[in-house]
Design a protein around this nucleic acid. Structure first.
Lengths: 303, 303
DNA sequence: TGACTGCAATATGGAAAACCTATCGAACTG
DNA sequence: CAGTTCGATAGGTTTTCCATATTGCAGTCA
């Protein structure tokens, strides 16, 4: 059996006339006659009782028509659904973000996204890089915003921007008197860090030439917010990604935020997804939109 | 789109493996791959996200699969329905019968019919010949038992038997003393008839060489039963089809029933149907069954 | 590191199907 | 009785579908 045949049968049932049904189906009458006959032979029943001047539907034909109509109905619904989903921008996009980026980047783009691509619905998830990559590989996420190279042949990346690290130190700190901060000025022994697993932790340690194994596990914050509270309370210094900077930190907690004169004191943020992910256009649109709404504290990478 | 393609999609969804899905669908892997790809192109969406070592269903694919499953389900139900209806003996057969035959023939065959063809369900309708033929032509009946040639190129007939007419006269009647009844003995002027429209009326008039127009509309019965009551009450005589004979008439109403020695004092009963009626086997089965269960008062026509 | 394996995609040629035009045969129409 | 209508049939062409062979990629094992 064949969907085409079902449509032919419905046409004949509608017109009760092979010629008109053929015309409405955009085929010749012999073609339609042949297909109807073929289908009747396959099913082993007569659907239409036809003579030279009349076409009548048999009782069993009437019953079969009910099914045929349902089938065609379902198929059309299916095609409509596909058509509605053709736009890669339409539908939910499951996006993961690292915790040191999400709370600061997403507020910048959610409103513009709703304005420019109202049909693209982000489903957000905040987790550390390794978990995000796992979810990507398991098709539990469609894309992720991370700050390290994905390092997986199955994944692709769209570089978005380079985000400099700023130095955060307590108001009463010797560095307060320095105009410019260079690499050797970094107070490595007073460095406060996030918990392990956050890419920021490794990156800050890298900038400070600290070894992974070299302790520094006495005081670990679980979020940037906590970390800043610690700095404000005078427990030490840290490096903060530019997007996380907020003037309220200075006023509320007395933290001083400073640009630094250190090459590579930055991280590259990228959008990653499986190479096989079919909605490449959605990724591109998202990447461009993020790029357009970045503040000048970061350096955009043109797409 | 194509039902075959839908089955391919379902197979891939089940196995998450093109090779295995192809094997289960009894086609080669390239064939299946090609059809899936063709369908994805047609629908404009990706159903499977596939790499060298994994096949995953996209969210939109998952939605489409729901429809695909429903469609295949419906099609299979349709095929099952057709298969169940393949037997021409199965299902209702709408049968019309003339009133001078139905009440006497049907009791003879209904039980044997249920025994031999339990799946063949007769839907009976009793009407005069002209109405039965109209219903046949309008596909409101499938077949009819009548006693005149259908005289319609669209109809076919299966002759069943010749049914002699018997003479019915009141007990106290001059003919009582005659051993044999010949044509010239018929009491034409005392003849009682059924209403117009009954084929029996014309046939009896024919046997008696009475003109259609020649009156005889003073006393008309609406059924054979009434007619016999009239005969029993001494209003006149009539000719009765052999199957209608019942011993109770003699005992209850005092009617005398006599064979007659008249050529053509009989009617041919046949099963008629549209030439295009597809369940020819059902007709043949019914005809043979009727034939097998006739009493010896009629002359069977071997089929 | 190099042969081997597993998997989907691609290339190419052959078979089946669907389709077309032309025509037939039957029956109705003027 | 010619003309028309309608479904069925005949014969040939095109499209679609399918199979075998091959490619390309990524693991796996020796």
């Amino acid at each position: 059996m064949n969907l085409r045949d079902l449509r032919y049968v419905l046409a004949v049932a509608e017109f009760r006339h092979f010629g008109k049904a053929a015309e409405a189906s955009f085929v010749s009458q012999p073609t339609l006659s042949g297909q109807i006959k073929k289908m009747e032979d396959e099913l082993g029943v007569t659907i239409f009782e036809r003579s030279n001047r009349s076409v009548e539907i048999t009782p069993i034909g009437e019953q079969l028509l009910i099914y045929a109509r349902r089938v065609i109905e379902q198929v059309e619904a299916m095609e409509n659904l596909a058509k509605a989903a053709q736009d890669p921008l339409a539908g939910p996009l499951r996006l993961g973000v690292i915790p040191t980026l999400g709370p600061y980047l997403m507020p910048l783009i959610l409103l513009p996204l709703r304005k420019d691509f109202p049909q693209l619905h982000l489903v957000l998830r905040e987790e550390i890089t390794s978990l995000l990559l796992d979810h990507l590989r398991r098709h539990e996420l469609d894309a992720a915003l991370i700050a390290t190279p994905p390092d997986d042949d199955d994944l692709q990346e769209i570089p978005l921007f380079d985000e400099p690290f700023w130095l955060a130190h307590p108001a009463k700190h010797p560095l307060y008197n320095k105009d410019e901060i260079y690499e050797e000025d970094l107070p490595v022994d007073q460095l406060l860090l996030l918990a392990d697993g956050h890419c920021l932790t490794e990156q800050v340690m890298g900038v400070c030439h600290l070894d992974q194994s070299a302790g520094h596990d006495d005081l670990r914050a679980s979020s940037l917010e906590t970390l800043m509270q610690l700095v404000g309370a005078g427990f030490g210094c840290t490096l903060v990604p530019a997007l996380a900077l907020r003037s309220s930190w200075a006023t509320d907690t007395g933290v001083i935020l400073r640009q630094v004169n250190i090459a590579n004191a930055e991280r590259r943020v990228r959008l990653v997804a499986r190479k096989t992910f079919p909605r490449a256009l959605a990724l591109k649109a998202l990447a461009r939109l993020i790029n357009r709404h970045l503040p000048n504290t970061v350096r955009r990478i043109e797409i």
